[in-house]
């Protein structure tokens, strides 16, 4: 039986909702032990995997992991505050081309805030304040023009949120330059079709590109949002629990899509679902109450978590 007092150990839920219809995050008391575990130097991991001949691949039943490419974004000593509340505490992480970084942790631990900071969407919230450095290809993202930066680092949200316009216009919206001249539909069409194909949606909507996007099913809407994000040819794709509002079948489709997309993009995904993190993540970062507790290759982190807090958290689903 679940002791009602135990649930108080979980942090108050803020923006994150528990995964809908998925495996919920385990309700377990997590010991509030000492200092956050220091993240492994990432470059070593990549070298280690390459040298050992990809030990994880050999193990039966393991998902195939992506091949890490160059580092695209670097987060160093990042802290985010909402008023006096520190939502993210001194987090440092690399984001590499060709692999998926999965952020896991209980609700309200700062995963989503961290993700939103990466494309400067936290700036939309008036009370948010950021410290530390985030670079994109070595350039401080604050020195990039914000709309330009968001075109390079695009985002898919928890709720499918297509605009109330046609399927075509939803994707074309991302392509159209802001302001004065609007390209003709004929010019845009190949790009729209390409984006829809990359998101694996084209075959389902090919005959009715002019239909309202909101008539699509939830899973299709979410893939449309992915297509919309891909249309601007971003270099980094941020996904905030992209499957939590979807049924298992749509989730499966989107997970396959993520694995496919990581070849050309760097992907950061926030998820409540540990199995999902295991299936699609190449590296996993476990966050708790704003701290980055542990970061490492997915198989290592799930097989031998180094921090007690990580062990307790993933033990809830894997123990």
């Amino acid at each position: 039986m679940i002791d009602p007092h135990e649930s108080t150990a979980r942090p108050a839920q803020t923006t994150d909702e528990p995964a809908n219809g998925m495996m919920p995050p385990p309700i377990r008391r997590i010991t509030l032990d000492s200092q956050p575990t220091v993240a492994l130097p990432p470059s070593q991991d990549a070298v280690a995997i390459a040298n050992t001949g990809d030990r994880s691949l050999a193990a039966a039943g393991r998902p195939k992991r992506g091949v890490a490419g160059p580092e695209r974004m670097t987060i160093s000593d990042l802290s985010v505050y909402y008023g006096d509340n520190q939502a993210v505490k001194h987090v440092s992480l690399p984001i590499r081309q060709g692999e998926v970084l999965a952020l896991i942790g209980p609700s309200g631990c700062g995963k989503t805030t961290l993700l939103r900071t990466l494309n400067r969407l936290t700036e939309v919230t008036g009370s948010a304040r950021r410290e530390g450095l985030i670079t994109l290809d070595g350039t401080d993202i604050d020195s990039l023009e914000v709309t330009e930066h968001r075109r390079r680092v695009s985002m898919v949200f928890q709720q499918p949120n297509p605009f109330p316009m046609s399927v075509f216009d939803n994707v074309a919206y991302a392509l159209r330059e802001q302001g004065s001249k609007r390209p003709k539909k004929k010019v845009l069409e190949p790009y729209v079709v390409d984006a829809l194909q990359r998101a694996g949606l084209y075959d389902e909507v090919a005959s009715n590109l002019d239909h309202p996007a909101l008539r699509l099913s939830g899973g299709q809407q979410q893939r449309l949002c992915i297509a919309r994000a891909l249309a601007a040819r971003p270099e980094v794709l941020l996904m905030d629990e992209p499957c939590s509002a979807l049924d298992p079948k749509s989730t499966n489709v989107i997970e396959e899509l993520i694995v496919e997309l990581r070849k050309e993009l760097a992907i950061v995904i926030v998820t409540h679902n540990l199995q999902q993190a295991y299936r699609v993540g190449d590296h996993v970062a476990f966050m708790y109450l704003g701290d980055l507790v542990e970061y490492g290759p997915t198989d290592d982190l799930f097989d031998n978590p180094k921090a007690a807090r990580t062990r307790d958290y993933i033990g809830g689903a894997f123990g």
Binding site: L121, V124, T147, R150, R151, S154, N161, Y173, A232
Partner: peptide
């Protein structure tokens, strides 16, 4: 936010 996230 979806629009801002597309760099609009």
């Amino acid at each position: 936010e979806a629009s801002y996230a597309l760099g609009k």
